[in-house]
Computed example of a mutant assay.
Amino acid sequence: MSKVVVTGRIPEAALELLRAEHDVDAWDGSESIGRDELLARVAGADAVVSLLTERIDGELLDAAGPQLKVVANVAVGYDNIDVPACRERGVIATNTPGVLTEATADIAFGLILMATRRLGEGERLIRSGAAWKWGMFFLLGSGLQGKTLGIVGMGGIGQATASRAKAFGMEVVYQSRSEIDPAIAAELGARRVDLDELLEISDVVSVHCPYGPATHHLIGDEQLAAMKETAYLVNTARGPIVDEAALAAALRAGLIAGAGLDVFEKEPTVHPDLLELENVALVPHLGSATVETRTAMATLAADNALAVLAGEQPPTQIS
């Protein structure tokens, strides 16, 4: 039996798969595992099933030892993994694409509705106990029908978000490194544009691109200034794609109308200026947070680890 280290709490269904074939050391603390504890636990591991809260770098790979065969990330994003360092050591890295597409698109569109219809402001008002009364101009928001959604990064989640936008009567434009399948583009009524045009014409900009050096602060002062004053920004990808300080300044100055964020630059910390603003909806990284999705993610990660340990090709290896 091989040694499998699981760096955080995952659904029992995935642990049962791993325990049926291997010796599993799973962290079950309510808080994230400390770095020193993690480095000690991975020593001698043949597989590491990691959460996005753990940094998988050369130090950790070396602490595990040369017998380490696979790092199976329980996330579609893998900016927490030093993939080149894995390749250098012959360690296969995997992620969990596809299984969280619909859940994350739901959150993206939920944030679009929260921001454009001022739902967070309304709920805070009710809970505060303050007096309120219906009126023609009370907490007016913005409708979506006939408006343009600009999607930055048209992968699976971007496409699923576009599908929801179509159902709401929105036009869709997108910016991506490559064109999507023409049949899918036709079905969604989606048109590819460059980022500058997308920012200029969109009523809502939704971020879905991967995070890396090329997309760090992709949305900053210049990009926010290029958006319509009536536009909204939504980010359900990775926090550092958006410059939070620049976003807070733009929201305060009225350069854009509002925003919705599920991810943050330095999670779990949120930029204090954002916390003071009413025109931004903030939720704590809930994109994949359904029982069904988290179970599917963990199970896929377990399947990836089991495949590599059996000498087989994992279902979703990071290329």
Rank of each mutant, 00 (worst) to 15 (best):
I10C: 07
A13W: 02
E16M: 12
L17V: 10
L17S: 10
L18M: 10
R19F: 05
E21G: 05
H22E: 12
E31P: 01
E31Y: 02
R35Q: 05
D36P: 02
D36R: 10
L39D: 05
A40L: 05
A45V: 09
D46T: 04
L52T: 15
R55H: 08
D57C: 01
L61N: 03
D62Q: 11
A63R: 08
P66H: 13
V71S: 08
V74W: 05
Y78D: 09
Y78A: 13
D79L: 04
I81G: 13
I81V: 15
A85G: 06
E88R: 08
R89G: 07
R89C: 07
G90E: 13
V91C: 01
V91W: 02
A93Q: 01
E102C: 02
T104H: 06
A105M: 06
A105S: 13
A108K: 00
G110I: 07
E123D: 15
E123Y: 10
I126A: 14
I126T: 14
S128Q: 04
G129A: 06
G129P: 04
M136P: 04
L139H: 14
S142L: 00
S142A: 01
A160R: 10
T161W: 11
S163H: 12
R164D: 09
G169C: 11
V172R: 02
Y174G: 13
S176M: 08
D181Y: 00
P182C: 07
A185K: 08
G189Q: 08
D194H: 01
L198T: 09
V205C: 09
H217C: 07
E222A: 15
Q223D: 03
Y232L: 00
A237S: 15
P240S: 03
P240D: 00
E244S: 07
L251Y: 03
R252K: 15
A253M: 12
I256S: 01
G258Q: 08
G258I: 02
G260K: 11
L261N: 00
L261A: 01
E265A: 09
T269H: 10
P272L: 01
L277T: 00
L277K: 00
L277R: 02
A298W: 03
T299K: 10
L300A: 07
D303Q: 15
A305C: 08
V308Q: 09
E312W: 05
T316L: 15
Q317E: 15
S319C: 12
